[in-house]
Amino acid sequence: MEPIRSLALEKTFSTGAVLRGLDLAVPQGSIYGLLGRNGCGKTTLLNTLMGLSLPDAGRALVLGQALGRGCPKEKAAVAYVAQGELLPSWAPVRELITLEAELRPSFTADGLHAWLDAENLSPRRRVRDMSAGQRKRLELELALAGQPRVLLMDEPFAALDPVSHADFTEQLLAYAACHQPTILLSSHVLSDLERLCDRIGVLAKGVIAYEASLDDLKERTLLVTARGAVASQAPPAEGQIASYSAAGSTTWIIEGLQSVDVKRLEREGFRVSHANLEGLGVELIRSLDPRVC
């Protein structure tokens, strides 16, 4: 079974249903980017996978286990960098290192110490005396030092400055190349996901409404645009994923077009262009999760 798996997952809060039968399977060694609008349930999904929130129905499994109670062996191999700041503010860095080292058998602090040296931070420094960016980086460094087999991250890079961001990304990807961990991260920064991920999924209306490998997305997905008024709103070819209208033109996001189809569409006056995640992501999310303002 995939290291990260959810089956028909359901979760309802007093404000309404958030997860509505969500199925997710992140294959071994994959770096999976979770996209979706604020409040669409990304954090709920991650919390449920970590066993911090119990599902109303369905199953959330990490390394084959529901991580609620017990599972110390699995938990030692899973790291979660949650949203916000969770490290105790009074703690000196070295105590956090000692704690993590005791909890995680394969803990290796080399990268962490290299970062502390580069930042000129003493291990005696307390969490509260660090900048917000440093605190987040410390959380990420601690997670990676545990050499996790599964790593979940919720909006992990928002607080980092550009240099810290680039340095940590480099470290994360080098770790991924060596150890093939399975990584699930949520982010609104499409350019980040474009570099890091091999797969992306869009969470909308309580399910994974769209999922694709990034290579497929770039090789097989095209934007077909009709300028001016179109006679009908029907998609001009099969394989439609989504469509949207703006400024008098309509665009269809279409998968698996053959070159003969492209030629036909161009003859018929449509504009056909390749898609990247940055260009596509916004419209994809908008059309899968329309909200009336």
């Binding site: 480099e170 990807l173 570099r195 091999d198």
Partner: peptide, 13 residues
Amino acid sequence: RELAGGMRINPSS
């Protein structure tokens, strides 16, 4: 490892 880390790209790429 050097390529994925250095260029900051997904290792499978």
